[in-house]
């Protein structure tokens, strides 16, 4: 059937264009096949190590899992694990809300700081590569186990190392508070600024990757844009808001999403630890899965809302 149609068409269309068209189609199909080949490892991994476990984890969350010789048994219990996580468990709901609130206060500060730092590091000055090397150092210094060790550490707080509990930190913030109160800003805003100063180490140390992303973005802006605007007589301030900011605004979205995920799923997060302990310390696999699913859904909703909001200020050059 198809063959006859092709010959019918072939009668109407001249030979040369037809040949060209078919070759183009083949090339496209070939490229699509190559594309599948390149992403094939991901597809395999996605199914075996992501989608199947994700569904399994959901099944565990609506069952009571009992470990027996050579495997496990599942007893369906409906939504009672979810109910236990949210209503019965002593701290789960509170810790969940707390880590979300903590994330909401920190992420804007991280974005602002990392954008500021990237702009600083993008300028020319002596010792720039040293400064860059040190600014990226937190990626090493506060990853994985380091964060766990630092977060519950006695020496650090007693020596005022992270400036959170130390006397110096408190003293500084008091001085700043007095200054800000005189400026007649709203008290909530002042509180926010002061808490930001108190947590400056946390913010700086959570900004390594974000600085990197912003810096790479700043460097990819074509210098010709600045040359043109300088000829028109624009000031540095105008250049910043009319060129730099719009050009890196897609990265604000990227960094916001990254910071949210990083803040909610890092190794020192309370909820993450609780989910782990519920599974392996108290062997309550069903409850642990329910907690993990609730947490995942919460993150998904938050990321969805934030992406919607931030997308409004993002400008795409093209």
């Amino acid at each position: 059937m198809r063959g006859t149609m092709m010959t019918d068409k072939a009668l109407k269309v001249a030979a040369a264009p037809k040949k060209k068209k078919r070759r183009g189609l083949n090339l496209n199909r070939k490229r699509a096949m190559m594309g599948y080949l390149f992403v094939l490892p991901f597809i395999i991994g996605l199914i075996t190590f992501f989608l199947v476990p994700l569904i399994q984890s959901f099944i565990f969350s609506i069952n009571k899992l009992e470990v027996v010789e050579g495997g496990y048994n599942l007893l369906p219990v409906g939504l009672s694990n979810y109910n236990r996580a949210l209503r019965v468990h002593a701290t789960y709901a509170r810790d969940l809300v707390e880590s979300v609130l903590y994330m909401l206060t920190n992420v804007p500060l991280i974005i602002i700081f990392s954008f500021f730092a990237a702009n600083l590091l993008n300028q020319k000055f002596k010792g720039r590569s040293l400064a860059r090397a040190i600014f990226f150092l937190p990626v090493i210094l506060t990853s994985g186990v380091m964060l766990v060790i630092d977060s519950g550490d006695l020496l650090q707080s007693s020596l005022g190392m992270t400036q959170t509990d130390g006397q110096e930190g408190a003293f500084r913030a008091v001085e700043l508070a007095r200054l800000l109160l005189r400026s007649r800003l709203s008290p909530t805003f002042i509180d926010y600024i002061i808490s930001a100063v108190d947590r400056i180490y946390e913010i700086v140390s959570a900004s390594g990757v974000q600085i990197l992303v912003f810096l790479a973005g700043l460097q990819s802006i074509s210098p010709s844009l600045f040359e043109a605007s300088n000829i028109e007589g624009a000031t540095g301030w105008e250049n910043f808001w009319k060129i730099t900011f719009p050009m890196v605004s897609p990265l604000i979205l990227v960094n916001t999403v990254y910071s949210i995920i990083d803040s909610l799923t890092n190794s020192s997060n309370v909820v993450m630890g609780m989910i782990r302990d519920t599974a392996f310390a108290s062997n309550d696999y069903g409850l642990s899965s329910a907690m993990a699913w609730l947490y995942f859904l919460a993150i998904l909703v938050i990321v969805g809302i934030v992406v919607k909001l931030v997308s409004k200020v993002v400008f795409y050059y093209e």
Binding site: P53, Q56, R276, A279, S289
Partner: peptide
């Protein structure tokens, strides 16, 4: 895969 906390997949894995 970035958004899903690894803890969600922990037991099945």
């Amino acid at each position: 895969t970035m958004i899903v906390p690894p803890q969600t997949l922990m037991i099945p894995l």
